[in-house]
């Protein structure tokens, strides 16, 4: 899980071009970060699909709008793939 969190965090920094962001799980969510608006959200999730080689459903995209939701979702997807 830690590894997933770090990778997601790196992608967030890259997508929103924020180098000095701190990994604050409660703070990282749509609306709190410059650029993370509804279009930014789509860009972020597209990058995460590429990063982890997974595919989100429409529901995934609409529901997962915080760092916690997203990392939990990715963990679930990666586990599903293993089993």
């Amino acid at each position: 899980m830690e590894e997933i969190k770090n990778r997601v965090f790196e992608v967030i920094k890259r997508v929103f071009k924020l180098r000095d962001l701190t990994l604050d799980e409660d703070f990282l969510r749509e609306g709190n970060i410059e650029g993370w608006d509804s279009l930014g959200h789509l860009n972020l999730l597209m990058e995460l699909e590429r990063e982890f080689g997974i595919k989100f459903s429409l529901d995934d995209i609409e529901r997962s709008r915080t760092f916690r939701d997203i990392t939990a979702l990715i963990e679930r997807k990666l586990n599903e793939r293993k089993t």
């Binding site: 789509l42 597209m46 699909e49 459903s57 429409l58 995934d60 995209i61 609409e62």
Partner: peptide, 14 residues
Amino acid sequence: NENFWYAGRIKYSL
């Protein structure tokens, strides 16, 4: 990208 197409009108994949 059918998912992102319906979520926000981005038709092509990365």
